[in-house]
Computed example of a mutant assay.
Amino acid sequence: MAATKHGGSNFVIYAALAANLGIAVAKFVAAAISGSSSMLTEGFHSVVDSLNQVLLLYGQKRGRRPPDADHPFGYGRELYFWSFVVAILIFAVGAGVSIYEGWVHIAEPEPLRDPTINYVVLAVAFAMEGASWLFAMREFAGSVRGTSWWQAVRASKDPAGFIVLFEDSAALAGLVIAAIGVWASHAWGDPRIDGVASIAIGLLLGVVAALLAREAKGLLIGEGADPAVVAQVRKIVDSRPEIIWVNHVRTLHTAPDRIFVAISADFRATLSMGDAEPLIEAIESELKAALPMLSSIYIRPERREDAPLLHLNEAENGG
């Protein structure tokens, strides 16, 4: 799977940020007028989403810094750190505040007021969130052709894309829950139902946060490249007549669009050191031409019999 370009992710994040800032203000105004717990919860939800998008933009900016002596492979994985922070914020702030607000409104129900403003704001918010969701889905779908949606999320190395998609999906579901809560509270004359809707939104955010944290954790720890990339690296190296056997191909994403690769190969015994050096340089040039995302390439001559353990463990390490 090709790595997602930062430019596309930035557009999706800016679109989501603009939508959430406007929606948050409208939701808080509606909550103040109507006294709706679920609308107040939705307001906090939009604020958290806005903060998340700011953090993702910050992470992308920090991640584009060039390598230096302290970080020879660059700062690309800093985006993965901020993605994990985003997941924690969704859980701690978004889900926590929603559940707390719901519990308060169940324990101390507020008198019902005219819900018209809530329906207007929810309709506008749904339209804006829907537009943001379409942008995110279109961007994400463009990089995951030929695979299922969930498999694409698991395989994606660009957290900005799937985090915004998850956030927008949760936001749309939250708006539906809030609308049902507002309607049911007035239809049955029980304001506690609105509080139950807030708790439901909080639980939904908790599930989304757990899924995002799981994916961000894997990227933060370090994930290998897509198997198709590893197979292509192996094929290019193995095509050289001077190579007897490719022992293993180890890869690691140092950024969404940058991959470190370490290759162990058994060179023909008749190949001299003087011939091996230009051969390695030629292989590196061919690999970078075929796979531009390979930012660092390390090729180690190693006899096949000296690397059995690495070869046996290759499937466990993404190579």
Rank of each mutant, 00 (worst) to 15 (best):
M1P: 08
T4S: 10
S9V: 05
S9C: 06
I13K: 13
N20D: 08
L21M: 12
L21V: 15
G22C: 04
V25F: 13
A26E: 06
A26S: 09
V29K: 11
G43D: 06
H45S: 01
S46Y: 12
L57S: 13
Y58K: 08
Q60M: 15
Q60D: 11
Q60V: 14
Q60W: 13
R62K: 15
G63T: 08
R64Q: 15
R65F: 08
P66Y: 10
D68Y: 09
G76I: 05
Y80S: 06
Y80D: 14
W82Q: 09
S83G: 15
F84P: 06
V85T: 12
V86N: 09
I88G: 11
F91I: 01
A92R: 02
G96L: 03
S98P: 01
V104P: 04
A107F: 08
P109Q: 05
E110M: 10
R113L: 07
D114W: 06
V124H: 13
A127I: 12
A127P: 13
G130H: 11
S132G: 07
S132A: 15
L134N: 13
F135Y: 14
F135M: 15
A141P: 07
A141V: 05
G142M: 11
R145H: 14
W149I: 09
W150P: 04
Q151I: 05
A152F: 11
A155R: 14
K157G: 12
L165K: 13
F166M: 13
E167M: 12
S169N: 04
A171V: 02
A171N: 14
A173L: 14
A173P: 07
L175P: 03
V182I: 15
A184N: 09
S185L: 12
H186Y: 05
D190S: 03
A197P: 07
A197Y: 05
A197M: 03
I199W: 02
I201D: 00
V208Q: 02
A209R: 09
L211G: 08
A213Y: 10
R214H: 12
G218D: 12
G222W: 11
D226H: 09
A231L: 02
K235H: 06
I236P: 00
D238R: 02
S239Q: 05
V246C: 02
V246I: 01
N247A: 02
N247C: 05
H248T: 07
T254D: 07
R258K: 14
R258G: 01
F260E: 10
A265N: 08
R268K: 15
R268V: 01
A269I: 04
A269F: 12
A276C: 09
P278D: 03
L279S: 05
A282V: 00
I283Y: 01
E284W: 00
S285E: 08
L287M: 00
M293F: 01
R300A: 03
L310K: 13
L312E: 15
L312R: 15
E316L: 11
